Computed example of a mutant assay.
Amino acid sequence: MVIKTETVKAIVFDTFGTVVDWRGSIIADLSQWGEASGVHADWSSLVDEWRGRYEPQKDRVRRGEIGWTNIDDLHFEALCSLLPEYGLSNLSDAQRMHVNRVWHRLNAWPDAVAGLNRLKKRYVIGPLSNGNIALLVNMAKHAELPWDSIFSCEHFQRYKPHPDTYLGVCRQMYLEPNEVMMCAAHNYDLAAARSVGLRTAFVPRPTEYGPGQTTDLEAKDDWDVVASDLQDLATKMGA
């Protein structure tokens, strides 16, 4: 069934969790690197705790406690604060940077690249992500994500769900809000996008946070499209 979304000309995607499997990618990457480098740690726990500091770190920027700081720098600050807890205080500067740059090396979910390639034939596609520009570009190269453009919150110096992020895409593309669709695996992201007039598509990623995930297991509102994955989204969007 093709959904009636005739006005849509561009689709932007939340990236961490929606397009790429950040948790599985980081655990696999750092486990392999640690084995080869003789650096041993509970990588799964470190990754979960590291990600747990993601929203609090961004909140410091949102509240104006610190000036605009990109995600690479926020990730690095959080990582360094965690290293002693995991017996990794002796990592060199180069090793710390390698670990922090793991966010540039995330792998796509199995359906993502094929689904995006189908959507790209009919729509302008790109990430609308809290990730900074360099991170998103490097991730796209690594995971073969076929973006037409990069829409980073770094462009707008605001983190989602600030309205400037969603409307910034519209402004840059000379499109009206109802001509842009936000696709995400997170209901809060879609609610914020809808509040400023964007169309919305929900794709569940029930293992984003691991086997015990309890949030965003299903659509919590009547989004314009609810798809099982990005291949299904392409089908429902007539691509």
Score class of each variant (00 low, 15 high):
M1I: 12
K9A: 04
F16A: 08
T18Q: 04
V19L: 15
W22L: 00
S25F: 01
I27L: 05
A36C: 00
H40E: 13
W43T: 00
V47W: 00
G52V: 10
E55G: 08
N70Y: 00
I71C: 01
H75Y: 07
F76S: 08
F76K: 10
C80P: 00
L82M: 01
P84S: 10
G87S: 02
S89Q: 13
S92W: 03
R96C: 13
M97P: 03
V99F: 08
V99Y: 03
R101D: 13
V102H: 08
W103R: 05
R105F: 08
L106C: 13
W109H: 14
P110E: 13
R118W: 03
K121T: 15
G126Y: 10
P127A: 12
A134T: 15
A134E: 15
V137K: 14
N138G: 09
N138V: 12
Y159C: 09
K160T: 10
K160G: 07
H162S: 13
Y166V: 10
V169K: 05
V169D: 04
Y174D: 14
L175R: 05
N178R: 11
E179V: 02
M182Y: 08
C183R: 08
N187D: 04
N187V: 03
A191I: 13
V196H: 07
T200H: 01
P204D: 09
R205W: 02
P206E: 06
P206H: 06
T214V: 15
T215D: 14
V226R: 01
V226N: 02
D232E: 09
A234C: 13
